[in-house]
């Protein structure tokens, strides 16, 4: 760079970061400095051409697979199979509480006018859902399907696991409403029960 201004001010001028006074001064300088004029055009060209964002490279599927495999070996869910089942269920219960805290019934449903009516409906729905064979929500033993069903209904992701091999077969999931708040419920069936 042969011109001091080009070094110190040009980028700021280009980025619009100079005060009005400094900008005006720089523009006077521009009128008789070929270096700066050329540099400015270059910068302009550069900003148009430097779409660096197009260089973004997403991780290959193989990396995700490797990470999943690595992490699975250290993940507490699978580290110790049998004794951890109850630990896991306890953790899931904790998470349900998180879900309760995170997901409130729509404000539209919370207006006083509808409160009494709703309360009745809620109780009805709840009692209904407890009857055998009845499942409001999704009835599926597919973890992904159940997880997908909750998606959009909860503000946090709900881990859904099938424990069929441990005697708890995933049956589905539903949203119950307890004290005006939605509760995510995972339904498991125990064969013979």
């Amino acid at each position: 760079m042969t011109c001091d201004f080009a070094d110190s001010l040009l980028q700021c001028y280009f980025d619009g970061e100079l005060s009005a006074l400094s900008a005006a001064e720089f523009e006077r300088h521009l009128q008789h400095c070929v270096d700066c004029a050329v540099e400015l055009v270059d910068l302009d060209l550069l900003s148009g051409r430097l779409q660096l964002a197009q260089l973004y490279e997403a991780a290959p599927a193989s990396l995700r697979k490797k990470i999943r495999a690595d992490l699975r070996s250290v993940a507490p869910t699978t580290a110790i199979a049998q004794p951890l089942l109850w630990h896991w269920l306890a953790a899931a219960a904790t998470l349900l509480l998180v879900a309760i805290a995170g997901w409130r019934a729509s404000p539209l449903l919370r207006t006083d006018d509808y409160q009494a009516e709703l309360a009745e409906e809620i109780v009805d729905a709840h009692v209904h859902s407890l009857q055998p064979g009845h499942l409001t929500g999704i009835s599926s033993n597919d973890e992904q399907a159940v997880k997908g069903w909750f998606k959009g209904k909860l503000t946090c992701a709900l881990p859904v696991r099938d424990f069929a091999d441990k005697g708890f077969a995933l049956q589905g999931g539903r949203l119950d409403v307890v004290e005006e708040r939605s509760v995510a419920v995972l339904v498991y069936a125990r064969p013979g029960h």
């Binding site: 991780a59 507490p76 953790a91």
Partner: peptide
């Protein structure tokens, strides 16, 4: 387990 869930939710989305 809670750490693990947090890890899954907070860190894994940034693999890319």
């Amino acid at each position: 387990h809670e750490d693990w869930l947090r890890f899954e939710q907070l860190v894994l989305p940034h693999v890319d």
